[in-house]
Design a protein around this nucleic acid. Structure first.
Lengths: 228, 228
DNA sequence: TGAGAACGAAAGGTAACACCATTGCGGTAA
DNA sequence: TTACCGCAATGGTGTTACCTTTCGTTCTCA
């Protein structure tokens, strides 16, 4: 139910200013008032709707959506806003992940340092064999580990977001049959730098890596970015 | 009610693993079951709790909190997690705002370009006269405008977060009596670069500006950052 | 014509109930 | 003594019925 209505809003099937009523929702889904209310409360807390007495439940403008909520991201990736969503998420990653990698080079524990190297090697193996699903899993683990090792909780919280992007990219068929060698090199390069505590190099290597990502995504349509 | 329980969790008064029951909440606040349930649903959607049958409502580990939710940020800034929160938010700003400023130099409309210059000048005036409250308002408008002009919705969504930080910094008495001249210069510098469409310079100028911010914050306690 | 009063729609809130997934305890058997 | 099975208590989930509050609309009267 949350899924259904959330998707309709994020897809634009329900435009800003449209109103629903609880009764309408009860009928449509065959649920009780309580459940309908709870669902609306959640949508409200995600900024997708507001509810006012007498007026009904009003769909909000996209500007007030909580676009960091993984559910919203997922809905948009699966729906019509996909290109815009992927582009803005990639820019966000370009902003955050290099600094996170640098911080990880500084802060990571010994176990984390060995693990990141392992993951880099694992990605190469899986990538060269074209096992996209497993590759994606390792990729998610790689980026998640770095974001968590950064020691910054806000960066760590973005791990979910990055995971959703990586998963979406694979499941929506936006990945090449086999990852390009440059991407594999880049990951190993980041891993080596982090492992060695070279934070400046880690930062730069991650920036390279994401440059690859942006290139791979370019056919989707070229947005303006701040990078020249 | 949301406020009260949210604060207790983010402050650590309720530790991870503690459980509440709906009945307990009903008694404590003198509300009906329905209302208690709706509140819990919102807390659940913020990742602060999970609810399981037979067990009750369990307080979640900080790692699963939705730390980008402005309410969570605000609670933590007002509570005991303030220093950690300010530090991680500042690192986030260092990651995002330079790229956003660069993008704004590229994408901003003519009105936005004139407005950013006006705001820079206004901040100087207010800052030199020591009108902290008005200065803060202008500061928020300045950063919000840049984030919105970046053309990236994720960056734009961070405007709320930045606003909360700036407001918190002032209202919690963490600002000097009068902003340092370097900060005023930095803002005007960013504004000029954005206005002239010099995206590389805008990016660097914003990085300088945030360097100032980080310096000013340093006495709070020095965390490791990726910048040397 | 316009201001104010009455109406009614729709969300907000309360109460009471049936339902069912857990879980922990106790009893039985190996 | 231990392992397994079954039962009962617990506490969230879902439903229904009903009352309260707000506020946009409409109608009336000056």
């Amino acid at each position: 139910m949350l899924e259904a209505i959330g998707r309709e809003i994020t897809d634009g099937d329900l435009a800003q200013g449209d109103t629903l009523t609880l009764e309408h929702i009860q009928e449509r889904f065959g649920v009780s008032r309580t459940v309908a209310r709870e669902t609306m409360r959640i949508l409200e807390s995600m900024g997708l709707v507001t509810s006012r007495r007498r007026v009904g439940i009003t769909v909000q403008d996209a500007a007030s959506w909580n676009v960091f909520d993984p559910r919203v991201i997922w809905w948009r990736l699966a729906g019509s806003g996909r290109d815009a969503q992927l582009r803005s998420l990639t820019e966000l990653r370009i902003a955050v992940e290099p600094l996170a990698a640098g911080a990880a080079a500084w802060n990571a524990s010994a176990e984390q340092r060995t693990r990141i190297v392992e993951l880099g090697a694992r990605m190469r193996g899986l990538g060269e064999r074209g096992l996209l699903e497993d590759f994606m899993q390792a990729d998610i683990a790689f980026h998640t580990l770095l974001l968590e090792a950064s020691g910054n909780e806000m960066f760590a919280a973005l791990a979910d977001v990055v995971a959703v992007v990586l998963r979406g990219r694979t499941q929506l068929g936006l990945m090449p049959q086999q990852p390009v060698p440059e991407a594999l090199d880049a990951h190993e390069n980041v891993a080596a730098a982090v492992s060695a505590g070279q934070y400046r190099r880690a930062e730069d290597a991650m920036r390279d890596l994401l440059g690859e990502v942006r290139e791979a995504m370019a056919p989707l349509g070229t947005g303006n970015t701040s990078l020249d």
